[in-house]
Amino acid sequence: MAKRVLIADDTVFFRVALNEILTTGGYEVVGEAANGAEAAELALKLKPDIVILDVVMPVKNGIEAAKEITKLKLPVKIVMCTSLGYEPIVEEAIRSGASAYIIKPLNAEKVLNTLAGLGPF
């Protein structure tokens, strides 16, 4: 069965782009959140297999959302999404529960490879 993904990014632009990359890559996008708080809420409600969190978001940023989702102890893999130059911040997220990260500008192949590399669910 297709893996179910929740996307969190404050720009529609990246949500649409990511949605397309994932859908054509055989994933099912089950929800989209526009900020970190929504992401945590939807993660609990939709129980996705994967959550992709943009780092810079209003209300709650991606790092805070990653921590919150980790605390929920859901069987979900967290993937951070960020711009070039923010890798150090992402490492903080990895320490607090994220499994991997992808870098903007988005490259479809890299995104799909990263998700494919998330290993057993």
Partner: peptide
């Protein structure tokens, strides 16, 4: 300041893409 930072950040990200 936070909001401004995010606006520029989003414009940068989208423009680069």
């Amino acid at each position: 300041v936070d909001a401004l930072f995010r606006h520029y950040h989003s414009i940068k990200g989208m423009s680069a893409s």
